[in-house]
């Protein structure tokens, strides 16, 4: 016998993501899901950002990693609470893994939570975790054709950070072509060019972030 089912395969994840979102609402917490390929600069961006924010906002971090605690140690050295989520081989964070990580983090008093996803340009895009915004970071060494090759990641992100722009003189990366591709796959995406090494553009990123935080945090 044939039975009709018609269900979103990721429905179970959506349910947990909604529960996470309710918890974040309750706590008045702004949550950003940061995604990008390995080596693109996710942890470095967070380290720079924490230094720029921590006098004004109470910040916490969830670090997703397949293995090792290297990134959490880097974050912890900036004096903010951080919880490591080892995914045990999984290539992305999902709602349930984030929920597990939240158990180890005292949310009371926190205003901003950064979730650093596993380094990967494909899989994390598929899983909501209850975040307010998804942001992606891509460095100029990765090539300007990436919006065409990994459209989903660009489509689900509200913000695109183009990192390592201090390296532009040394690589064949056409910024205008890249932006055009990105806007064709996601016409609403906001793009900010930064260099976490020189600090260029970071004030624009912080401005974007603080306007988002202010909308959520009373």
């Amino acid at each position: 016998m044939e039975v009709r089912v018609v269900k979103d395969i990721l429905e179970a994840n959506e349910v947990i993501a909604r529960e996470n979102r309710r918890l974040f609402e309750q706590e008045g917490l702004y949550v950003l899901n940061l995604m990008g390929a390995p080596g693109t600069g996710k942890t470095t961006l967070l380290e720079r950002t924490i230094e720029l924010l921590k006098d004004r906002w109470r910040v916490g971090v969830l670090e997703g990693d397949i293995a090792t605690t290297r990134d959490s140690e880097r974050i912890a050295s900036h004096g903010v609470p951080v919880v490591q989520i080892n995914t045990g081989g999984a290539c992305h964070l999902d709602g349930n893994m984030v929920r597990g990580g939240l158990g180890a983090l005292d949310l009371r008093g926190l205003q901003v939570l950064f979730v650093e996803n596993v380094g990967n340009l494909v899989c994390p895009a598929e899983f909501n975790i209850g975040e307010d915004d998804k942001a992606m970071i891509l460095s100029v060494t990765e090539g300007d054709d990436k919006p065409l090759k990994y459209p989903l990641m660009f489509q689900v992100s509200s913000l695109l950070l183009l990192n390592k722009i201090d390296l532009l003189p040394y690589v064949d990366f056409d910024v205008e072509r890249f932006k055009e591709y990105a806007r064709r796959v996601n016409p609403q995406i906001e793009i900010i060019e930064v260099s976490c090494k020189t600090g260029q553009g970071l004030s624009d990123w912080v401005k974007w972030l603080e306007s988002r935080i202010a909308q959520k945090v009373k």
């Binding site: 044939e2 039975v3 009709r4 089912v5 018609v6």
Partner: peptide
Amino acid sequence: RELEIESMEIEDGGEGS
């Protein structure tokens, strides 16, 4: 953007059909 289950074929369903 679909990622959906549509239907399934089962055996020994207990609904007499």
